[in-house]
């Protein structure tokens, strides 16, 4: 039991991202409304962003901004700063996920104009009626 609590305390960021990811995946698979699915997709992508950013953290270290970096005042040790690279990668990933969200919402609008609803059940029954004609 003590081990378990210790494990959760040490790795709670991984547990948090997995929980978020599963919430997103659940919404993507189980929800009937297309906009709810899109929200699930966003949660799914955000969980991965959280994972990346949390891996960069080092307890008790400074943010990676070096004042007077070009002067030879003192030696700079990378271990004294948190890792800035995952944040930079995630800036790109955020741009990608915003673009995905935009495309998804645009497609959802197109679907709504066509069928007059965003519920997948209703859309599928309309398609079946059309196919039956």
């Amino acid at each position: 039991m003590e081990n378990l609590i210790h494990m959760i305390g040490a790795k709670f960021n991984y547990i948090a991202y997995i929980i978020l990811m599963m919430i997103g995946l659940y919404a993507l698979i189980a929800k009937n409304n297309l906009v709810k699915k899109i929200i699930g997709m966003s949660i799914f992508q955000t969980s991965i962003i959280l994972f990346y950013v949390s891996t960069a953290y080092k307890t008790g270290k400074a943010i990676p901004i070096v004042e007077h970096g070009h002067g030879a005042h003192s030696v700079i040790h990378a271990t004294d700063y948190i890792n800035p690279l995952p944040h930079v990668l995630m800036l790109t990933a955020i741009v990608v996920s915003v673009a995905t969200l935009g495309v998804a919402l645009a497609l959802a609008i197109k679907v709504y104009r066509q069928y007059g609803t965003l519920e997948e059940d209703d859309i599928n029954s309309q398609i079946r009626i059309q196919a039956g004609k």
């Binding site: 297309l34 997709m41 998804a104 497609l107 197109k110 679907v111 066509q114 859309i123």
Partner: peptide, 9 residues
């Protein structure tokens, strides 16, 4: 559009 949205997910 619907097929594309499912592909997107």
């Amino acid at each position: 559009p619907l097929a594309s949205l499912n592909y997107l997910f």
